[in-house]
Design a protein around this nucleic acid. Structure first.
Length: 467
RNA sequence: GGCCCCAUCGUCUAGAGGCCUAGGACAUCACCCUCUCAAGGUGGAGACACGGGUUCAAAUCCCGUUGGGGCUGCCA
């Protein structure tokens, strides 16, 4: 490569930022950064009817969340309309494009009665129409020959020109269609590699034809496979859960999402799966991108999330948990609360799959009034020994010099020994009394964090509720 | 309908003619570990869509079939 690559990510702001878009952006970013290149962010908002400016912020913040940074942009196509108009005029003047006043219904009618395949029939191709309001500008596709896309991931893909309709360059309202806008911008922004989803492959010969008509060289293309749902259909905003924002709110870590996404359609070639950003940078290449669509499997992404969660330090876990804690009614972020959280953090990081599970895992420490799960409470009441065990536990724990997890544990083990009960059995009602749940972080650590006074009072609280 | 793409365990994939009795990971099952639950460990089940070629040899190359998907818009 003689020059540093310049790539672009060009989403259209028609909804929440899509996981498929995130993967495309990531591939672009990795490709550019691996070779010291430039990543351009461009917003394709030429269709007024479908775009909404508020989605742009969402796209940018999702990219930032994933640490996919752009070097140039965001450029808005809506602010570059004169550039497209200029290119369109030059195409018209050189006879490479023509004006058309056909309505869709007229075209359909003609095509249907002539028994032609759906598409434009070239009705205005030789009518010599001049520019007028409401008239669209169409590209005059050569009748002969073929246009070859030399794709970096799929190889050469040939399209016969006669199968390509005279497509629209400028709409009747004067706005450009994406093919034109894309070509003009990619030229203007000196884009060297267009890396995008496979769904764009069929429109690529059109773009190439426009480059040729403009007397310019086309960039290199690389079409990466699409992401599909469980029915193997392209992920869609309407029917599938695709918003990056949603996954963030569910409690996925950006590093986990990135690691999962990079493996969708690409692999490093060996058995490694956990990859750091640096690994990805060292290893990513377009020739290792696969050719078939990948199912976006949240279950596997959850596995990556667990892994990255378990890697966090206590302080990091607190930081990532904060937005979720602050949404609860028991967290007020006092130094005491923070230090309690930090003490228990190592015990919870391997017990959660999502950051959003953290509040439910630690609430018992912070709630002044413990609520006991119905099923947990039932499990205690159905065991006739529970009350005795709880009362005895108070005696055992009260005698402790130090209320620490190892002291609590040894005391329980000794008690289990003398009573002939298993530790498993013995701790069950205590756990419910302390945490209000049947499962949770290790009991003795939980009690240590909670402290002697609160622990003992919770034990007697539950004991007194039993007959 | 036309054009184009794709095809290895349920899923993500490794595999670029002999290393394949097809490897790994997720999910799943069993066991171990264990104060609950996780985590971790060990093991099990589980795939080259089909049919023809080419070749001494094919998951790998070619053709076809089947299946899936995308595009076919004055959306991107």
């Amino acid at each position: 490569m003689h020059e540093v690559p310049r790539v672009r990510f060009a989403p259209s702001p028609t909804g929440y930022f899509h996981v498929g878009g995130a993967r495309t952006a990531l591939f672009n970013w990795l490709f550019a950064k691996r070779f010291g290149g430039v990543f351009v962010l461009r917003i394709e908002d030429t269709d007024e009817a479908r775009n909404s400016p508020e989605w742009i912020d969402g796209i940018c913040s999702a990219l930032e969340w994933l640490k996919i940074t752009w070097d140039e942009g965001p450029f808005l196509q809506s602010e570059r309309l004169d550039l497209y108009a200029e290119a369109a005029q030059s195409l018209f003047r050189s006879g490479k494009a023509y004006y058309c006043d056909c309505q869709r219904s007229e075209i359909d009618e003609r095509v249907r009665s002539a028994g032609l395949p759906p598409g434009y029939d070239g009705f205005c191709r030789d009518r010599g129409l001049q520019s007028a309001t409401g008239r669209a500008l169409r590209f005059k596709v050569p009748k002969e020959g073929e246009t070859v896309v030399d794709d970096l991931v799929r190889g050469k893909v040939a399209f016969e020109n006669r199968t390509i309709d005279d497509f629209i360059l400028i709409k009747g309202n004067g706005a450009p269609l994406f093919v034109l806008a894309n070509v003009v911008d990619d030229l203007d922004m000196r884009i060297s590699h267009v890396i995008r989803a496979e769904e764009h492959l069929p429109t690529t010969p059109k773009a190439i034809l426009v480059y040729q008509a403009l007397g310019q060289n086309a960039p290199q293309f690389a079409h990466v496979p699409v992401l599909v749902n469980e029915k193997r259909q392209k992920l869609s905003k309407r029917r599938d859960r695709v918003a990056v924002e949603d996954y963030k709110e569910m409690g996925f870590l950006p590093a986990a999402m990135e690691n999962y996404l990079v493996l969708l359609g690409w692999s490093p070639g060996d058995d490694r799966e956990f990859l750091t950003r640096q690994d990805e940078l060292d290893l990513f290449s377009l020739d290792r991108v696969g050719h078939s669509p990948s199912f976006f499997d949240v279950t596997k992404m959850l596995h990556f999330n667990k892994h990255y969660l378990s890697l966090l330090s206590s302080e990091e876990l607190l930081q990532t948990a904060l937005p979720f804690l602050e949404a609860t009614d028991f967290w007020d972020g006092t130094p005491d609360q923070r230090s309690s959280f930090l003490k228990l953090a190592p015990e919870i990081s391997t017990r959660i799959g999502l950051v959003s599970e953290i509040p439910g895992m630690v609430d018992f420490i912070f709630k002044s009034q413990l609520s006991i799960d119905e099923s947990a409470f039932n499990s205690v009441t159905t065991d006739s020994n529970s009350k005795k065990l709880l009362e005895r536990s108070i005696e055992v724990f009260s005698g402790l010099e130090i209320f620490g997890s190892s002291e609590l544990e040894s005391a329980c083990r000794a008690w289990a020994e003398e009573s002939g009960l298993s530790l498993r059995k013995l701790q069950a009602p205590i756990r419910v009394a302390i945490t209000g749940k049947k499962v949770g972080p290790p009991l003795f650590s939980a009690m240590e964090v909670l402290g002697r006074e609160t622990s003992l009072s919770r034990l007697s609280d539950l004991a007194s509720r039993l007959s």
